[in-house]
């Protein structure tokens, strides 16, 4: 197997010093694949993805992307490292129009006009909404806009925090399929999901987190229907303490 694009090694950290949420978490993601992180509420899934994006302080351990050390990068420098992050909620600027949101995301693009038409080709649903305030979009459209803004910087790694949360099943399916489609251009996707079955069907590899620690990982398809997955969710039973 080739070297992983993203390598998270024994990361400990959290929002407040001395109160870590992640306890020595490790994970890898491979180029052009979809990796999903699942786990019960409070497992530290979102915290892990924010730590990769530089939004949560990493106290111990290290994170590398494409061979470069990115532990505790400044979040506004993410794009320079080819990383994009789609937050779970409040992921678009509601008071700006769709066009202004995209212009903001494309402002370092060499040819913003071409960038815009590329994004609209990928997300045709946004074309008719360009002049509308982003706050007036439906949930699914907002999510598309958020993903489009993330892709504006042509990242090689996209981090998505529960992209299907709060969407109708149909819209959720569309958003996840869109994510899958991105990998065909060699983009690596790392996503956090609550919707376990949908996520496992979509992903290549899966990590299960609980209480801020790795519990189990493996081929996503193999984990569908695995009784231990259900056990972690229902009983919080730890398979490998500490990992």
């Amino acid at each position: 197997m080739p070297d992983p694009v993203l390598n998270v090694m024994n990361v400990t950290g959290g929002y407040v010093p001395d109160l870590p949420i992640l306890h020595g978490v490790s994970m890898q993601a491979h180029r052009g694949s979809v990796t999903v992180i699942i786990g019960p509420n409070g497992a530290g899934k979102s915290t892990l993805i924010k730590a990769i994006a530089g939004l949560v302080h990493v106290a111990e351990g290290s994170i590398t992307h494409a061979g470069t050390e990115i532990t505790n990068i400044r979040p506004d420098r993410m794009a320079n490292h080819g990383i994009a992050y789609v937050p779970q909620t409040d992921n678009i600027f509601r008071s700006l129009t769709v066009r202004q949101n995209l212009a903001l995301a494309l402002r370092r693009h060499l040819d913003p006009a071409a960038g815009l038409s590329d994004l609209l080709a990928q997300f045709p649903a946004l074309t008719s909404k360009l002049e509308e305030k982003a706050g007036s979009l439906s949930g699914g459209q907002r999510q598309f806009l958020a993903v489009a803004m993330a892709l504006a910087t042509t990242p090689s790694l996209v981090l998505m925090d529960e992209p299907s949360a709060g969407l109708s099943p149909k819209a959720a399916q569309e958003v996840l399929e869109q994510a899958r489609a991105l990998t065909e251009n060699g983009v690596t996707i790392l996503l956090v999901e609550q919707n376990v079955n949908q996520a496992l069907r979509l992903a290549d590899h899966c990590y299960i987190l609980a209480e801020g620690r790795n519990q189990i990982d493996g081929n996503a398809a193999d984990l569908i229907g695995d009784p231990t997955v259900a056990e972690i969710y229902l009983g919080g039973k730890r398979l490998r303490a500490g990992a």
């Binding site: 994006a53 939004l55 979040p75 506004d76 420098r77 993410m78 794009a79 992050y85 937050p87 409040d90 992921n91 678009i92 600027f93 903001l104 995301a105 402002r107 370092r108 803004m149 910087t153």
Partner: peptide, 8 residues
Amino acid sequence: NLAQVNGI
């Protein structure tokens, strides 16, 4: 926060 994520 979102502005920062968008490179500002």
